[in-house]
Computed example of a mutant assay.
Amino acid sequence: MDKILIVDDDKKICQLVEMFLEKEQFEVIKAHDGEVAIKKFKEETPNMVILDIMLPKMDGYDVCREIKKISDVPIIMLTAKGETFDKVLGLRLGADDYMVKPFDPEELIARIRAVLRRVSTNSNQSAEQIIFPNLAINMDNFTLKINDKESQLPKKEMELLYFLASNPNKVFTREQLIERIWGFDFIGETRTVDVHIKRLRSKLKEVKDNYEIKTVWGVGYKFEVKKGV
């Protein structure tokens, strides 16, 4: 049974989420401030954290930072802060998903299950291969498999796709992608990233309903795994 830590100072929301989680056979732990959240996380070692941002004593961003220093456990931020800046910051700090209040509890359950599936899949695959339903990225032979059709991609396209897909739903700036894929000594324009993204989007169009390299305007790009995958 997966154990989930709910962190929210609104006890009614905690009770609502707890009710739906227990109905789905999850074990639930609750914390109502950031400091208690860290303490319970270390004591209980949950499989996932549902985390509000506006918390007493230590805000959700700091809680996320502290957890990610010691664990790769998935985190879904559930908060009233719905500005793009807040979403991008949360995802940059390591959150795996971000939901804005008011929310649909059934959608939250669906997202929880999707994130847990991805974590389970990634833990069972080799370091050089990423496997999603109907999509496989294999760095051993630089092949991309979509549905049952396999194709070979240029080296930089494969490295870029592999890196983004290894960090689903996380946003990266062009500069970060340049440094990671082309290296610190790259001489050229950051628009090189845009060209490669355009080519990758063309190759992913058959599975666009489930997987997409999305532009986060003013920031960069992310590999988005759609709800329900």
Rank of each mutant, 00 (worst) to 15 (best):
N167H: 15
S151D: 13
K222L: 14
I13K: 11
S123N: 13
L161F: 14
L5N: 05
I130L: 13
K208T: 14
S120F: 12
E22K: 13
K226A: 09
E212F: 02
Q129W: 05
T121I: 10
T143I: 03
R174Y: 11
R92A: 01
K170H: 13
V229Q: 08
V17A: 12
P46E: 07
G82D: 08
N141Q: 13
K155T: 12
M48P: 01
R118S: 07
F20E: 14
P46K: 11
K11G: 03
T192Q: 14
D9I: 00
L93C: 05
K226I: 02
E44M: 05
D10H: 10
D59G: 12
D194K: 06
R92T: 10
L5K: 03
D10A: 15
D2G: 01
W217H: 14
W182D: 12
T121V: 06
V216L: 06
A136E: 15
M58D: 07
P168T: 04
R191C: 09
D194E: 14
N210G: 11
I75W: 06
T215S: 06
P133Y: 07
K227R: 15
L177R: 04
S71G: 07
K145T: 13
N122C: 01
E66Y: 12
I50P: 00
W182M: 15
M99N: 05
F223Q: 04
S166W: 00
I70Y: 11
I178Y: 03
I4W: 11
E43I: 15
A165L: 09
R118D: 01
M19R: 12
F184W: 11
P168N: 05
V49E: 01
R111N: 06
V171E: 05
E27G: 01
